[in-house]
Design a protein around this nucleic acid. Structure first.
Lengths: 140, 140
DNA sequence: CTACTACTTCAAGTCAACTTGAAGTCAAGT
DNA sequence: ACTTGACTTCAAGTTGACTTGAAGTAGTAG
């Protein structure tokens, strides 16, 4: 059993965030010691999953859906497979971006617009336009 | 030369977003026809680059930094290489997540906590904890 | 018993990236 | 000349994911 400060220290997640996560139903405390929340140690892997899900561009609501409320993830297998496919598509886009960046860093073509590698990058970028699955950075 | 409606139609980017992007210095209009902004066609690849950069988890400020203001990207090669490395690390995380998801979709182990694939996923997730490079979905 | 500290709640603030709405303006068609 | 429609500006609103601040309270040290 961990109080919120211990959990915060072990996980690296600020206490305010832990309270927020509990409030929105992502984690659960199993009781109180005085005022203080007490958590079971299995919230640690759960927090790791949450962080990973965020890194993949899922909203907290989606992550809550994936994790379920019980301890056992108990998740819909088809949905998981679909999510995996979505992540895979995202990876492909990012691979193209990485290659494009690396190329741009070394390419000495007169104009990027004339460079075939750049052209390919553009095509992939434009392909992406339709599918509205974006991602953006979080402050801090 | 394109007016804002044509640019919006060709790029799939709503006009309000185009105005916003101009306001924050991501794109430039080259003049007005009456009230209406007029753009050069080379903003089209630029918009594609912006979308791709967002997909990679960069903020608009970072993207503005990468693209520069002129037509020629004129970007710092070292920074580009560093960005490419960052994207590559992100890809590795996502690959782990994808594998974890696929595994979870098919795994019939009694408890995920006992499953070695899940364990591996956890280790990678926890590795990520230190580096504050997150990403989250955009509405619409 | 009193202080002190670290927690508690709850409301409000913040941030990026946009969108929406009101009120105005221009050029093109009738 | 007048209407129409699509643009214009500018301020304010929205969303998700938090953080911050004020005011309160519970366990512990002295």
């Amino acid at each position: 059993m961990l109080d919120i400060t211990e959990l915060s220290r072990k996980s690296g997640v600020p206490a305010s965030k832990l309270r927020y996560y509990e409030e929105v139903g992502l984690i659960r405390s199993v009781g109180r010691k005085g005022l203080r929340r007490v958590f079971e140690p299995d919230v640690l892997p759960r927090l790791a999953l949450i962080a990973l899900g965020q890194a993949a561009g899922f909203s907290l609501a989606e992550i809550r859906g994936m994790l379920g409320q019980g301890k056992e993830p108990s998740i819909d297998r088809d949905m998981l497979a679909a999510k995996a496919d979505a992540v895979d598509r995202h990876i492909k886009e990012l691979s193209a971006l990485r290659d494009g960046l690396r190329h741009a860093a070394t390419c000495t073509a007169p104009s990027h617009l004339e460079c075939p590698t750049f052209q390919r990058l553009m095509r992939i970028a434009l392909t992406r336009q339709g599918m509205r699955k974006k991602v953006r950075p979080t402050r801090q």
